[in-house]
Amino acid sequence: MPSTFLGLVLLVVCLVPGFVYSAARDTVLPERTSSAFRETTRVVLASLALDTLALAVFGALRATAPGITPDVGRLVREGWGYARDHYLALAWWSLAVLAVAAVLGAGAARLLPRGAGPVTVESSWWLLLGRYPAEAGAKSAYVGCELVDGSYLGGTLKHFAHQAEETGDRELALVAPLEYRPQPGQPVRPLTGHQLVSVSARQIKFLTVTYLDHVPTDAPRPEPRGESTA
């Protein structure tokens, strides 16, 4: 650990690209729970790689246009003397290198695929409501929820919890057209007067997913494109 405040600040700044990469990764893939050691290692290694790439970009620019970049050789030889005389240019170029590393981290998080393997951390919700519809080219998904008390609730999927852990704390939201059946054996009827409904995973016995090739309006349910059950 750094022994000075300046060293601590530099360490935190150097880890910014790895944090950006990790945060951006969680927005495109299911959120996973990792140990503190594993998460820290991921951020540190990603920061090292991204900082190295950003410095390589700076090095290439330095080689092609030395007049507009700080003199790294003088900075190493003269230390604080050179830094005091050129502190403004050094500050701006440091921010530029950090910004390049952060942008590279955000881009890598979205473009790099997750490695294939026999074990997957994706939950059934993520596969049924996220990955499979995208692979099928569906524009929307109609979700029917059989609840633990025997009632039924169905509607077009609006959003759902992305975490990898399949816990009862997850929720999904359905948007009109909505359908509801209060008790088993009764007919399913339209649920009018409401635009959105939230359903807790604790109340769901099982759900069905129908992939649609268009976005339905508040009208009778369209014909399904393909159906999956969880």
Results as ranks from 00 to 15, higher is better:
P2M: 07
S3C: 07
S3D: 13
T4W: 04
L6Q: 14
V9T: 15
L10Q: 13
L11G: 12
G18F: 08
F19G: 00
V20Q: 06
A23Y: 15
A24D: 05
A24H: 10
A24L: 12
V28R: 14
L29E: 14
S34W: 03
S35C: 04
T40K: 06
T41C: 14
T41N: 14
L45H: 06
A46W: 00
L48N: 03
A49L: 03
A49E: 01
L50F: 06
D51Y: 03
T52C: 07
T52K: 07
L55R: 04
G59E: 07
A60E: 13
L61S: 13
L61Q: 07
A63S: 12
T64E: 02
P70L: 02
D71F: 02
V72N: 03
V76Y: 07
V76I: 13
E78I: 00
G81L: 08
Y82Q: 01
R84V: 03
D85S: 00
L88M: 07
S94D: 02
S94C: 06
L98T: 01
A102K: 11
L104E: 00
G105I: 01
G107W: 02
A109M: 06
L111C: 04
P113S: 10
G115T: 04
P118S: 02
E122A: 13
S124C: 09
W126F: 15
L129N: 05
L129G: 06
L129D: 04
R131D: 13
A134H: 10
A134S: 13
E135L: 13
A136E: 10
A136R: 10
G137V: 09
A138Q: 08
K139D: 01
Y142N: 06
D149L: 04
G150N: 10
L153C: 11
G154V: 08
L157D: 07
K158C: 10
H159K: 15
Q163A: 05
E165H: 09
D169V: 07
L172F: 14
L174F: 12
A176N: 07
A176C: 10
A176R: 11
E179N: 11
E179S: 11
E179H: 08
E179A: 12
Y180G: 11
P184H: 11
P187T: 01
P187V: 00
R189L: 10
H194M: 13
L196T: 15
S198N: 02
A201T: 03
I204R: 03
T208L: 13
V209G: 13
Y211A: 15
L212M: 14
D213N: 10
D213M: 10
H214N: 05
P220Y: 14
P220A: 10
P222I: 12
E223G: 15
E223K: 15
E223T: 15
R225V: 09
